[in-house]
C-alpha cells in the first residue's frame, strides 16, 4: 500500500497540461492586474486611508512590503509593478519557479494590505502558484523550455504527474465543498431552485439585473434548471475520482470500467464546468474569476491529448512529445490519456 502510494506520486508525464494551465492562468491574472491599472485603482487599492486609499492603517502587523517600502503611492506602484512583471514572467515561463514564488508572495502581500479586496480566486491562484514553485510547469510553452532547447539540453521532457494531480484534487475539493456549503434553501428543491434567479439580481455582482428578460417566465424556468444542475454537479463532483480510478484500472475489466471508458463521465463533468463558468462570465460581473477558473481546466486532459494538439499547431517540437513508451505508461495513467478513444 505504502509502496503504491509512493509510486503513484512518483509517476511522470509530459508537461503540456501543466504548462497550458500556467500560460492561461498567467494571462488571466495579467489581464486582471492590467484592468486594475487601467481603472486607476493602483493607489486606491494599495495605499492606506492616510494617502486616500482603501487599505487600513498599517497597524501592529503591517505587511512586509509596507515595512520595507512604506504605505504611500510609491510603494503602491512598486508593488503593482512587481506584480505585473512577475505575472508576465509566469505566463511566459521565464525563470518559472522563481517567478511563481515571487508572484505568490507579492499577491499575498496584496491580500495582507487589503483583505477585503482579496477574493477566493486570488487564494486559489496562489495555491496553484505554490504547485508551480515545485513543479515543472515551465518545461513547455515557455521561454525556459525554448532556452533549454537552444542550449541543446532539452531532451524528451517529463515532469512529475503529482502536480497536475494535486491541482485536480484542489478542484474536486473546491467544487464539492462549494456545493455542500450551499445552505440556502434556494439551492434545493424545497427552495424552488431559485438561487441563480436571486444571484442574477444581486446588485454588487450581477451584470443582468436590469435586463428585461430576467423577469420572464422562461428565465425563471431556465434558472431553476441551471440551479439544479449546478448543485447536482458540485455535490456529486467527487464521483470524478471514481471515474478516474476506473479509468486507471481499466485493464482489470468489468462492466463499470467499460462504461467509464466508453462514456468518459470525467470529461462530461469538466465540460459542464466550462459551461458553468461561461455562464458566470456572461451573467455576472466577477472580473477574472471565470477566466482564471477556466485557465485551470486544461489539467482535466492528459498531456498526450495536448501533445497531439501541440504537434499539430507547433510542428518541430517533437522532442517534447510523448514517445511510445510514455503513451504506454499512460495507459495506466490517471485519466485523459485516451481523450479521443
Amino acid at each position: 500500500m505504502l509502496t503504491r502510494w509512493v509510486d503513484f506520486w512518483a509517476e511522470e508525464e509530459a508537461p503540456w497540461s501543466l504548462a497550458l494551465v500556467r500560460l492561461l492562468l498567467g494571462l488571466a491574472l495579467l489581464g486582471d492586474y492590467l484592468s486594475m491599472g487601467l481603472r486607476g485603482l493602483v493607489v486606491p487599492l494599495l495605499t492606506t486611508g492616510a494617502d486616500g486609499g482603501l487599505a487600513a492603517r498599517a497597524g501592529a502587523e503591517p505587511a512586509l512590503w509596507q515595512q520595507l517600502f512604506g504605505t504611500g503611492p510609491e510603494a503602491a506602484w512598486g508593488l503593482y509593478g512587481a506584480l505585473v512583471v512577475t505575472t508576465v514572467m509566469v505566463a511566459a515561463g521565464f525563470f518559472t519557479r522563481s517567478a511563481s514564488l515571487m508572484l505568490l508572495l507579492l499577491s499575498a502581500q496584496f491580500a495582507w494590505i487589503l483583505p477585503a479586496g482579496d477574493r477566493g480566486i486570488d487564494m486559489l491562484s496562489r495555491n496553484v502558484l505554490m504547485i508551480f514553485v515545485f513543479a515543472g510547469s515551465g518545461q513547455a510553452l515557455s521561454v525556459d523550455a525554448w532556452w533549454a532547447r537552444r542550449r541543446g539540453s532539452g531532451g524528451v521532457v517529463r515532469i512529475g504527474a503529482w502536480a497536475r494531480r494535486l491541482l485536480l484534487l484542489q478542484l474536486v475539493a473546491m467544487y464539492w465543498t462549494a456545493g455542500v456549503q450551499k445552505y440556502a434553501q434556494q439551492w434545493w428543491p424545497w427552495g424552488d431552485f431559485g438561487a441563480l434567479w436571486v444571484i442574477w439580481q444581486d446588485w454588487p455582482m450581477t451584470a443582468v439585473a436590469t435586463a428585461g428578460w430576467v423577469q420572464s417566465p422562461l428565465a425563471w424556468r431556465f434558472s431553476q434548471l441551471a440551479t439544479a444542475l449546478t448543485i447536482g454537479w458540485e455535490v456529486s463532483f467527487p464521483l470524478i475520482l471514481v471515474a478516474w480510478y476506473l479509468l486507471r484500472t481499466a485493464d482489470r475489466g468489468g462492466r463499470w470500467r467499460a462504461w467509464v471508458v466508453r462514456t468518459r463521465p470525467d470529461l462530461a463533468y469538466a465540460g459542464l464546468g466550462v459551461v458553468f463558468h461561461l455562464g458566470i462570465a456572461l451573467w455576472l460581473d466577477l472580473g477574472v474569476f471565470p477566466w482564471a477558473m477556466l485557465a485551470l481546466y486544461p489539467a482535466f486532459l492528459g498531456p498526450d491529448a495536448w501533445a497531439r494538439w501541440v504537434s499539430y499547431l507547433l510542428p518541430g517540437q517533437e522532442n517534447l512529445q510523448t514517445n511510445a513508451d510514455e503513451v504506454a505508461g499512460w495507459g495506466r495513467g490517471w485519466h485523459g490519456e485516451c481523450i479521443d478513444g
Partner: peptide, 8 residues
Amino acid sequence: TGTGQGWA
C-alpha cells in the same frame, strides 16, 4: 503565502 482553503 496567502494560500489556504475556503470555498463557500
